[in-house]
């Protein structure tokens, strides 16, 4: 086969990350009948939280959304500490860090595909980027934890503030398909649905120009997992002897991580694009069982 054709085929071959993302999206939303009937799955697996942001009101969802569950337990009639949900999230975090964001999250896949639309791409200046990244932690603390836990309501049950006012995954995965397939729900849509559709449209538009804009600035689940990136069993590694300092990895990174300085930064979603971009194969990844993390402070030659 001529080299030109071979290169073209190679270019169009699905990357490992994309294959896993597609497989995960199908597995997490495997109840195909739900989309046709406009109903949701009600089987026993709904008691288990999935490790990704995937609305439990998506017609295909086979598991529970961890962020929705956290708010439901905190703001439910019993108002209790969410031991079960936090236990699961901590387990996912310690094992994988933000690998779930880079490889398994269906909304991450949506963002990656949107960023493929040909358009001018924006590089957010550092002075705006840094404070904006703090937003996701504020959303996690205020909308996911404090408001559901402490806001007073007449019924004693507080709404899931993040899901209700901000979550684009709920609108895209749950709201849109359910309203399309279910006329009785469609009749109930009002101002809140307009608001949520506007938020979804803005976030999706931002993702065309800024890679993983939602993961970078708004996702409370990513904020939670980011706390574990440095301790997680899954680690990225950088062989400093092989690194030639070309910074191709940093240009390929959708999260704008300074790969050669802190490869296991809290912002790294372990998507593997840096590893693919590295011309000297200095970057690796895998389960690290007790070795020294690769981003221990060492100076480049």
């Amino acid at each position: 086969m001529p080299r030109v054709h071979r290169d073209r085929l190679k270019k169009h071959k699905l990357r490992f990350q994309r294959k896993i993302q597609l497989l995960s999206a199908v597995l997490v939303n495997g109840y195909a009948m739900g989309f046709a009937k406009g109903k949701i799955f009600t089987g026993p697996t709904k008691a288990v939280c999935v490790p990704v942001l995937n609305c439990y009101s998506c017609p295909g969802a086979l598991g529970a959304c961890p962020i929705g569950s956290l708010q439901a337990v905190l703001g439910g009639a019993n108002r209790r500490f969410p031991f079960y949900v936090l236990g699961l999230l901590t387990l996912f975090g310690v094992a994988l860090g933000r690998l779930a964001c880079g490889l398994f999250c269906p909304f991450g896949l949506v963002q990656d595909l949107l960023h493929k639309i040909p358009s001018p791409k924006l590089k957010v200046p550092k002075r705006a980027d840094k404070p904006l990244r703090l937003l996701k932690y504020i959303i996690l603390i205020v909308m996911v934890i404090l408001l559901p836990a402490f806001a007073a309501t007449a019924t004693g049950v507080t709404p899931p503030f993040f899901c209700k006012y901000l979550c684009p995954a709920g609108t895209l995965g749950g709201g849109v398909p359910l309203l399309l397939a279910n006329p009785s729900l469609r009749a109930l849509a009002g101002a809140l649905f307009c608001w949520k559709t506007l938020v979804l449209a803005l976030i999706l538009a931002a993702c065309v120009f800024i890679p993983r804009a939602f993961c970078r600035y708004l996702c409370p689940l990513g904020a939670f997992y980011s706390l574990f990136n440095r301790f997680s069993l899954y680690q990225m590694t950088l062989d400093r002897d092989k690194c030639v300092g070309c910074k191709k990895c940093e240009r390929a990174c959708p999260m704008a991580v300074e790969v050669t300085k802190r490869i296991n930064s809290a912002e790294c979603i372990r998507c593997g694009k840096c590893r693919e971009a590295c011309p000297t194969k200095a970057i690796g990844s895998g389960m690290d069982l007790g070795r020294k993390p690769a981003d221990a402070p060492e100076k480049l030659p």
């Binding site: 949701i40 799955f41 009600t42 026993p44 709904k46 008691a47 288990v48 939280c49 609305c55 439990y56 009101s57 969802a61 598991g63 529970a64 959304c65 929705g68 569950s69 439901a72 337990v73 439910g76 019993n78 209790r80 969410p82 031991f83 079960y84 949900v85 709404p159 899931p160 899901c163 209700k164 979550c167 709920g170 609108t171 749950g174 709201g175 359910l178 309203l179 729900l185 109930l188 849509a189 009002g190 809140l192 649905f193 608001w195 949520k196 559709t197």
Partner: peptide, 23 residues
Amino acid sequence: LGREHVEVFQKAVKICLECIGIG
């Protein structure tokens, strides 16, 4: 032990109107 998974299940098997933007 506190049967919190039951609470998660009960929430997850009903359509969450807030989550889908109905209210």
